[in-house]
């Protein structure tokens, strides 16, 4: 583990995966401007069909546009690769759809500086703000219980995509990140690598526009797949960080 590094000089990157989010991004950029703290922003445009790229450029936000749609996992991982190549100390992942309020960024940064390797913004610690639909809450609770059973650690909001990572986790994610529905699985991977995971209460908004990637029809497939992925992650060995 890193010793006492000058915490002031820690380079921080905000990773925003975006797929057809041109309507939501300007508001998010405004909010980010108001947010205190020193950080860079990168939008990963996952081959959007709208003018997401143009919106970023107009707002002078750095954007990486994938030539092929890779899905949320592949997009977020591109951000982590960028963080790794540019030697960032902290990476914060934030959805581009307006669900995640940037005002919690300074607190997430603080948690990583305090020695946590992964800090998850959780809706279910103080149970404030948008709590998702009842059926989704049941699903989230189930994943939470499954992870508690397999790793012994209680994660109240394993599906949250609002997360901050340390250098170690950036490296881990840059090399290995699941394709779709990545959040619960990666929490287990990080725990399996004996890294410190903590949660911080955040308030999420109902999505302002666009659609959730998980529709009712896909719900069952999602539950089965993520259950399997969590189980596999909990029996896989420590990730070997390196090229394949």
């Amino acid at each position: 583990m890193k010793g006492i590094k000058d915490t002031e000089s820690m380079k921080t990157l905000i990773i925003i995966p975006a797929y057809n989010e041109s309507e939501n991004l300007p508001r998010l950029f405004e909010a980010l401007k108001e947010t205190e703290g020193d950080f860079d922003i990168i939008v990963i445009n996952d081959c959007s069909r709208d003018n997401t790229e143009a919106v970023c450029k107009r707002n002078n936000i750095k954007v990486v546009s994938l030539p092929v749609n890779l899905g949320i996992g592949g997009a977020v991982q591109t951000g982590y690769r960028y963080a790794l190549y540019h030697d960032y100390d902290i990476a914060i992942q934030l959805d581009g759809d307006g669900q995640h309020d940037p005002k919690f960024i300074p607190y997430l940064i603080k948690r990583i500086k305090e020695g946590n390797h992964l800090c998850i913004g959780s809706r279910f610690i103080e149970n404030e703000g948008y709590q998702s639909s009842k059926i989704r809450r049941i699903g989230i609770k189930y994943f939470s219980k499954l992870i508690k059973f397999l790793t012994g650690t209680l994660i109240t909001d394993p599906t949250s995509g609002y997360r901050a990572c340390s250098r170690e986790v950036i490296k881990l994610f840059a090399n290995d990140y699941p394709k779709d529905y990545p959040e619960p699985e990666t929490v287990v991977t990080v725990l399996r690598n004996k890294l410190k995971v903590s949660e911080m209460p955040v308030i999420m908004n109902a999505r302002e526009g666009g659609k959730s990637s998980i529709t009712n029809l896909k719900g069952i497939y999602y539950m089965i797949k993520v259950t399997l992925a969590i189980m596999i992650a909990s029996i896989s060995g420590k990730s070997v960080v390196g090229e394949d």
Binding site: I44, K62, V63, V64, S65, L66, P67, V68, L70, G74, Q77, T78, R81, Y82, Y85, K179, D244
Partner: peptide, 21 residues
């Protein structure tokens, strides 16, 4: 192949962004 394509797409996008910069 899927894994390789993913990696290639990511590296390509990052390189392109770098070049534009």
């Amino acid at each position: 192949h899927a894994d390789r394509i993913k990696k290639l797409v990511q590296e390509l996008a990052l390189l392109k962004a770098e070049l534009e910069d």
